[in-house]
Simulated assay, not measured.
Amino acid sequence: MDIASWFDINNTLVNIPIGAGYAMSWIEAVGTLFGLLCIWLASQEKTINYLFGLINVSLFAVIFFQIQLYGLLLLQLFFFCANVYGWYAWTHPTGRQGQPLQVRWLARQKLILTAVAVSIAVAALAVFIDPVFFSLARWSVAGLNLLGLSVSLPELQPDPFPMWDAMVTVLSVVAQVLMTRKYVENWILWVLINMISIGIYAAQGVYAMAIEYTILLFIAANGTREWMATARSNGSVHGFARGTTI
């Protein structure tokens, strides 16, 4: 198997007998494995998770390019940058005393502001999700063509689950940012994201992806439990239990 064929989504590793059958390619299998390892290592507060995350988003960017989901391809660029920043933030001292980041809860004011911002962003994206992602697709195609890849804009279809997809998109961005700063709330958001994703993929008949997100759900739930315990040992409490956190 040459390198080019390994990246081809039509290069099937295994046919999964779920529903009408699901042909999982090598690149999807490896990308999924690195994604699972990334989330598990993050739940253990291991900085190496960001290396696995970078590989995961890079491989999925290749997948989205091939299936012409250019809006999602552009989102992978954000996640790539977030992984780079998270790796830096977790390994470099912060603040005047040069202390490394500690697992902690958001302060009450930050928690309220985040909740308000998320609510507004989800509502706005749910209303404008088609033009937003259509624009992302056009920008991605234009950028790829500038690189000399000669891609064409695919036929764009309306989103069948605008509210749920808006929630997953916005919450994923917020959760990723919160993870880079070691806030416990990131895991609570990932639990919610995975629950929604399971429902979306099951409704679309993509049962292999639903199973994958079920695994991610358990990892996120475990991450929530472990980071809550770590925050407690660090002397940090939930924002609504106290006005400020360490």
Rank of each mutant, 00 (worst) to 15 (best):
Ala175Asp: 11
Gly148Lys: 11
Phe78Leu: 09
Ile55Asn: 02
Tyr207Ala: 08
Thr91Tyr: 05
Tyr201Asp: 03
Leu41Asn: 09
Gly35Asp: 07
Val170Trp: 08
Gln44Thr: 05
Pro160Gln: 08
Tyr201Pro: 06
Ala124Val: 14
Gln68Phe: 02
Gln176Leu: 13
Ile18Ser: 07
Gly35Phe: 15
Ala203Ile: 04
Phe161His: 10
Leu51Trp: 13
Trp40Met: 04
Ile193Leu: 09
Val191Lys: 03
Val118Tyr: 01
Gly205Cys: 13
Tyr50Phe: 15
Ala210Ile: 05
Ala121Thr: 13
Val30Leu: 15
Lys46Ser: 06
Ala210Pro: 06
Glu28Val: 05
Phe7Asp: 08
Leu69Cys: 02
Ala4Trp: 00
Ala124Tyr: 08
Pro17Gly: 03
Ser43Cys: 05
Gly239Trp: 01
Met209Asp: 12
Ala4Asp: 15
Phe128Lys: 02
Ala142Pro: 01
Asn15Gln: 10
Val57Thr: 08
Ala82Glu: 06
Gln44Pro: 01
Ala20Lys: 11
Arg225Glu: 09
Glu28Pro: 08
Val84Gly: 10
Leu36Trp: 07
Gly21Glu: 01
Val30Thr: 14
Leu72Thr: 04
Tyr183Arg: 12
Ala42Lys: 02
Tyr213Pro: 00
Thr12Lys: 01
Gly21Lys: 05
Thr230Leu: 14
Ala29Arg: 05
Trp187Phe: 11
Phe80His: 01
Arg96Lys: 14
Val30Trp: 13
Ala4Thr: 13
Thr230Ile: 13
Gly35His: 11
Phe161Leu: 09
Thr169Tyr: 06
Leu72Gln: 11
Asn234Gln: 10
Leu72Tyr: 14
Leu113Phe: 10
Ala229Asn: 11
Leu33Lys: 04
Phe65Gln: 00
Asn222Phe: 11
Pro162Asp: 04
Leu73Met: 12
Ala229Gly: 10
Cys81Ser: 13
Ala203Val: 00
Met179Ala: 14
Ala208Lys: 01
Asp165Pro: 03
Trp26Gln: 02
Gly53His: 08
Ile129Leu: 09
Asp8Gly: 07
Phe64Asp: 08
Thr91Gln: 14
Gln68Cys: 03
Phe64Ser: 04
Asn15Met: 10
Met1Val: 12
Val237Ser: 09
Val57His: 06
Gln99Pro: 00
Asp165Leu: 05
Tyr183Asp: 04
Leu13Asn: 02
Ile67Thr: 09
Ile246Val: 15
Val191Trp: 06
Ile63Gly: 00
Ile48Ala: 12
Ile193Thr: 09
Gly53Phe: 08
Ile120Thr: 06
Leu33Gln: 04
Asn10Arg: 13
Ala231Arg: 04
Pro154Tyr: 05
Gln102Lys: 14
Gly86Lys: 01
Phe52Leu: 09
Ile219Ala: 10
Ile219Thr: 04
Val132Pro: 01
Asn49Glu: 03
Gly86Phe: 09
Pro158Asn: 07
Phe134Met: 11
Leu106Ser: 02
Trp87Leu: 14
Ala210Arg: 05
Gln99Ser: 10
Gly71Ala: 10
Ile193Met: 10
Ala126Gln: 01
Leu216Arg: 11
Phe52Val: 04
Gly239Ser: 06
Phe78Gly: 00
